[in-house]
Amino acid sequence: MDKFKDLDPLLHSQLRLAVVSLLLSVESAEFVFIKEKTGATAGNLSVQLDKLNTAGYIIIEKSFKGKKPLTTCKITKKGIDAFEQYVINLKQYINK
């Protein structure tokens, strides 16, 4: 995978890329919405969301909806910048 060395490894993963693309288009989204749209399993999604959160690409807010715990995700400025850079790099490969 040498030719992909410039692509942000954090975004160059199917599910994480899907999550960031999805969050880019909305103000905020709940865990269930992301799960439904990406078709991921809850466990896998949690792990990937944590990675994006640790990198500062997204913010995860935990609250309650009635008695049910509620996880809401939001993309950060850093996440938007990283995504833009990822798309720019991707374009270079495609135009080659």
């Binding site: 160059h12 199917q14 890329l17 693309s21 288009s25 749209k37 990406t38 991707l90 495609i94």
Partner: peptide, 12 residues
């Protein structure tokens, strides 16, 4: 990659 981005933007 492009397909994922396009699909997710369309979904939202």
């Amino acid at each position: 990659s492009l397909e994922i981005i396009t699909n997710m933007i369309a979904a939202a």
